[in-house]
Amino acid sequence: MKPTLLAVAHGTRSAAGQRQIRDLVAAVARRRPELDVRLSYVDVQQPRIGDVVPAVRDAVVVPLLLSAGYHVRVDIANAVEGTGIPVTGTLGPDEVLLRSLTRNLPAADAVVLAAAGSSDPAWRESTHEMASKLQAHVAYASGSAPKVADVVADLRRRGARRIAIAAYLLADGLFYRTLHRAGADSVTPPLCLDPTVAGLVLRRYESALLTTAAGRL
C-alpha cells in the first residue's frame, strides 16, 4: 500500500478555484508517483478531511493553507485526533511564496499584501511576517480591518500613482475576485498557479517524515 499525502484545502464555490487546487494536487502526484496523493477540504467542498482520515494509513496531512488558524487548530486537529497521523505546517509564510509574489509584481509606488482575513493572532502574525519581507502594506479581503479597498484609497490620497496588490491567496474565489475591484493598478495571480508551489507541498510532506523518524529514534 502506498503512503498517503492527504492535502487539505479550504474549499471554494469558484469553478476556477476548484480546478486550480485540483491541478496543484495533480502536479504533486506527478512528481511523486510512489505516493497516494488525496485531496480533502475543511469547508464548502467534499470530501471533508474528517471523512477521509479513517480510510487512509501511513498518511501525512499537508494543509493547503497559507497561515495557521481555526481550520488548522480545530478542523484538522479534530479530524486526526487519536490517529497518530502527523500534520505539517501550513504553506506560508515561506520563501517560495515570497519569490512567487515578487516575480509577479510589476513596478509600483506601493504594494498591498492582500490576505483573506482572520482574527486569529497566529494567522495575523504570519501574514504580517510575509508583508514585512515584501515591504508591503497589509490589508484583508474579508472580515478583519483594514480592508483592501480602504488601504488602496488611502495610498492614493497619500500620492501613490501605481499600486500593486500582492494576492496572498492560494486560488481563485470570492476573495480573490474582490481584489480586482479594490482600485489598484494590478493584482498578482493566485499562488497555486506557480509551479514551484507543488514543490513546497512536497517539502512540507518530507519535513513531517523527518520529524516523525527523529521522534522514533
Rank of each mutant, 00 (worst) to 15 (best):
A166Q: 06
R181K: 15
A116E: 07
G89V: 06
S119H: 12
A139G: 04
V111M: 04
S142D: 01
T88H: 09
A115I: 13
T102Y: 01
A141V: 09
A114Y: 12
R181I: 13
P190C: 06
D172S: 15
R156M: 06
S142L: 13
A182P: 03
R177D: 10
D150P: 11
V151L: 00
D109N: 11
S119I: 14
P93M: 03
D120N: 07
V187W: 00
F175G: 03
R181W: 10
T90M: 09
R99T: 06
L113R: 01
P93V: 04
L191E: 00
L179Y: 01
S186Y: 01
R181H: 15
D94Q: 05
T88Q: 05
R157E: 02
K133A: 12
I163L: 07
L105C: 05
R156T: 07
H128R: 12
A114I: 12
T188Q: 02
G143F: 05
G143L: 14
S132Y: 13
L170S: 04
H137C: 11
S144Q: 06
T102S: 00
T178P: 00
A122W: 15
Y140I: 08
V111K: 07
S126V: 01
R177E: 14
Q135K: 15
Q135M: 02
P86Y: 10
V151C: 10
P93T: 05
R162S: 15
K147D: 09
P86M: 07
T178I: 08
K147V: 14
D94H: 15
A115K: 05
K133H: 10
E129F: 13
A164H: 11
S186D: 12
A77C: 09
L101A: 03
D194T: 04
L98K: 03
Y140V: 01
I163P: 12
R162W: 00
A122Q: 15
A131H: 15
D109P: 15
R181T: 05
R103Q: 09
V111D: 02
P146V: 07
S118W: 11
L98Q: 07
E129R: 15
A149D: 13
A107V: 14
I163R: 02
H128G: 01
G84A: 02
A160I: 02
R124M: 12
C192T: 08
A145S: 04
L169W: 08
A182M: 09
T188I: 10
A115C: 08
D172M: 07
V111W: 09
A79V: 08
A136T: 06
A108T: 07
T102Q: 10
L191D: 00
I165A: 02
R99D: 06
N104Y: 03
L169E: 06
R177I: 01
P86V: 05
G183C: 11
R158N: 04
F175E: 00
L101K: 08
Y140Q: 02
A141G: 15
H128I: 13
L193C: 08
L191K: 12
V152H: 01
A166S: 07
L91V: 07
R162L: 10
L179A: 05
N104E: 10
D150R: 08
Y176D: 03
V138Q: 02
F175P: 00
A182H: 11
A141Y: 14
V80D: 04
L174R: 15
S118E: 08
A184L: 12
S100P: 09
W123R: 01
A122E: 13
